[in-house]
Nucleic acid binder design. Structure first.
Length: 283
DNA sequence: CACGTCACCTGCGTGC
DNA sequence: TGCACGCAGGTGACGT
């Protein structure tokens, strides 16, 4: 579910607090409850409980789709996968303690009385407690907003790959942060067909694609991410989708009905008039 | 290296 | 109403 903009939104809310919850930075951990054992990827539960107790949150950030909660010399790393979500709410021994919700997989209790709940309907999400974040995330591709990722370098990355562009963009080892929605939106805004072969993109097309990827991700962040299906996080970028979930509706640019095909086992939305494959041009 | 398939899970909408 | 089925913002392990 969450892609870069949603994780970025969650990270910034945990870092800065919001109307309903304080910042987690500076808070000291009282203990943790693991409600679904497999949500904890590492270490084993006993080591986890002993290690996390008493740690202070020293910072919160994001890398790709991973949420990083720094705890002095350790870090709590969370990947929300398809259905994960984070809540911060009043916890134990506090007035107005909130009830545990269905699908809560892990609870982190703070000395302040607040708690952080990791909720994950489909149980795909994972949590790590590690002293070596670098090693855990070493295989991730560059951040889309990395200043050292310029159009020339991006173009070279694409020219080395004889893969279909959409699954390549979603490959976290190639580029980190894009998922199914933002990839479809970026390709539409770049006028590129999702089945194009990466190595065939011209330098101009590659540069345009990088600019549009950044544009759509930034727009997602500015709107606090997307809220769709039963997972609501307060974002409203779903109101700005141009192709995702718009099958059969008129393209905002040319009026042609948006189509949906399967690419790499993923539902893929595009405008058949705006996103033409070069070998399909008829003139 | 690139691609397809499956596994991991639950819940919702659709059509019979 | 019941139920089978397809589908869903993700990723890794396989086999070809």
């Amino acid at each position: 579910m969450p892609e870069l903009p949603e994780v970025e939104t969650i990270a910034s809310q945990l870092r800065n607090g919001n109307e309903t919850a304080p910042s987690l930075v500076g808070q000291v951990i009282l203990g943790a409850d693991l409600c679904w054992a497999r949500s904890l990827a590492a270490p084993d539960p006993e080591t986890f409980y002993l290690t996390i107790k008493g740690r202070q949150v020293t910072g919160i950030s994001r890398r790709g789709k991973f949420l990083l909660i720094n705890l002095e010399d350790q870090a709590l790393v969370i990947h929300l996968r398809m259905s994960g979500d984070i809540r911060v709410e009043p916890g134990q021994n506090v007035l107005r303690e909130m009830p545990i919700q269905p699908h809560d997989r892990m609870i982190i209790n703070f000395e302040s009385g607040w708690r952080m709940a990791f909720n994950d309907t489909r149980k795909f999400g994972r949590v790590w407690l590690t002293d070596d974040v670098q090693r855990l995330l070493q295989r991730l591709g560059p951040e889309p907003f990395d200043p050292s990722l310029d159009e020339k370098r991006f173009s070279e990355m694409l020219h080395n790959r004889k893969r279909i562009i959409k699954p390549l963009l979603m490959d976290q080892h190639f580029l980190s942060g894009l998922g199914n929605i933002y990839t479809d939106e970026a390709l539409f805004r770049s006028n590129l067909h999702p089945l194009r072969i990466a190595s065939t993109l011209s330098n101009e097309e590659a540069g345009r694609l990088l600019r549009k990827i950044r544009e759509v991700l930034q727009s997602g962040i500015d709107h606090n991410g997307s809220s769709i299906d039963w997972v609501y996080r307060g974002g409203n970028f779903q109101n700005h989708f141009q192709v995702y979930a718009r099958v059969g509706k008129a393209c905002y640019v040319c009026g042609t009905p948006i189509e949906k095909i399967t690419v790499g086992q993923r539902g893929t939305h595009y405008c058949p008039a705006c996103q033409i494959k070069p070998d399909e041009k008829t003139d």
